[in-house]
Amino acid sequence: METFKAFLDYFTLDEWKIISAVVAVILWVAGKLTDRYYRRKRQKIRADFERRLRAEGKTPPPDIPFPPE
C-alpha cells in the first residue's frame, strides 16, 4: 500500500489533471475506432446476407438491420 501511495504522490495535482485528460482522449479515440470497426463488420455481414438472398432469387427486406442467426 505504501508503494501505491508513493506512486500517487509522485505526480502533482496539475500533472494528474493532464494525465486524466490524455487518458480521456485516448479512451475516446479507442471507442470511436471500436465503433467504426463493428459498424464496418455489420455492413459486411449485411452485404453478404443481401448477396446470398439475391443469389437465391429473393429480395432482401429493407428493415432488417442484421441477418437472422
Rank of each mutant, 00 (worst) to 15 (best):
M1V: 07
M1H: 04
M1S: 08
E2P: 03
E2I: 14
E2D: 10
T3L: 10
T3C: 02
T3W: 07
T3H: 08
F4S: 10
F4E: 12
F4D: 11
A6P: 06
A6V: 14
A6F: 15
A6K: 15
A6M: 15
F7N: 08
F7V: 14
F7Q: 07
L8C: 13
L8H: 09
D9G: 09
D9S: 06
D9C: 08
Y10I: 14
Y10P: 00
F11D: 01
T12C: 08
T12R: 15
D14H: 14
D14A: 14
D14N: 14
W16C: 05
W16T: 00
W16S: 01
K17F: 03
K17C: 05
K17W: 02
I18Y: 01
I18K: 15
I19V: 07
I19N: 04
I19W: 05
S20T: 06
S20Q: 04
A21D: 12
V22M: 04
V22D: 06
V22F: 02
V22S: 06
V23C: 01
V23E: 02
V23M: 03
V23F: 01
A24G: 09
A24T: 13
V25D: 04
V25Q: 04
I26K: 03
I26L: 05
I26A: 02
L27I: 05
L27Y: 03
W28M: 14
W28K: 09
W28T: 15
W28R: 10
V29K: 06
V29G: 02
V29L: 13
A30I: 06
A30T: 06
A30L: 14
A30M: 11
K32R: 04
K32G: 07
K32E: 07
K32M: 07
K32W: 10
L33C: 13
L33P: 02
L33Y: 09
T34A: 13
T34Y: 10
T34D: 10
T34V: 09
D35N: 10
D35W: 01
D35C: 05
R36L: 15
R36Y: 13
R36P: 09
Y37G: 00
Y38C: 02
Y38G: 01
Y38E: 06
Y38V: 05
K41V: 06
R42I: 13
R42D: 15
R42F: 10
K44M: 12
K44W: 11
R46D: 06
R46H: 11
A47Y: 08
A47F: 08
D48L: 13
D48F: 07
F49I: 01
F49V: 01
R51T: 14
R51P: 04
R51K: 11
R52S: 14
R54A: 05
R54D: 02
A55H: 08
G57R: 10
G57A: 13
K58C: 08
K58Q: 14
K58L: 15
T59I: 13
T59F: 02
T59Q: 07
P60C: 04
P60W: 06
P60R: 02
P61K: 05
P61N: 07
P61D: 08
P62L: 11
P62Y: 07
P62G: 12
P62F: 09
D63C: 04
D63G: 05
D63E: 11
I64P: 00
I64R: 09
P65D: 14
P65W: 05
F66H: 09
F66K: 09
P67V: 01
P67H: 00
P67K: 05
P67A: 05
P68R: 09
P68C: 07
P68I: 08
E69K: 01
E69L: 00
E69C: 00
